[in-house]
């Protein structure tokens, strides 16, 4: 399988998993923020992949690579947020 395919699939999976986790542990306004950032990240990743597949770029995937880095950073912080929220809410109970 091409590297870009499994890398994109893994990125999608981690992004969706991380934001689903964040969504279920967050409350009130932060739920809204999680949705906005999550949908934004998904849209950016999808658009970049489609653009890269459709256009005959000769950029050695520089643009797509930068988007993937950004998505991984967002996923990482979303996961951190979910973990902290989860443990703090447990502590609160």
């Amino acid at each position: 399988m091409e590297r870009i395919v499994w890398l994109s699939a893994l990125t999608y999976f981690l992004l969706v998993a991380s934001f689903t986790f964040s969504y279920y542990v967050s409350k009130g306004r932060s739920k809204m923020v999680v949705i906005v950032i999550g949908v934004g990240a998904l849209a950016l990743l999808s658009w970049s992949l489609i653009d890269n597949a459709v256009m005959d770029y000769q950029d050695a995937n520089i643009g797509l690579g930068l988007v993937l880095y950004l998505i991984w950073i967002i996923t990482f912080f979303s996961f951190l947020f979910a973990i902290f929220t989860f443990f703090f809410s447990k502590k609160g109970k």
């Binding site: 005959d56 770029y57 000769q58 950029d59 050695a60 520089i62 643009g63």
Partner: peptide, 29 residues
């Protein structure tokens, strides 16, 4: 039109250059 806006901005900022080769008669990065 051979690089996206994002690749252009990112590439210029980070000084990244694509290597272009001839593969089966076509120019590919």
């Amino acid at each position: 039109g051979r690089v996206s806006n994002l690749a252009y901005i990112g590439g210029a900022l980070l000084k990244i250059k694509p290597c272009i080769e001839l593969k089966e008669g076509k120019l590919v990065s």
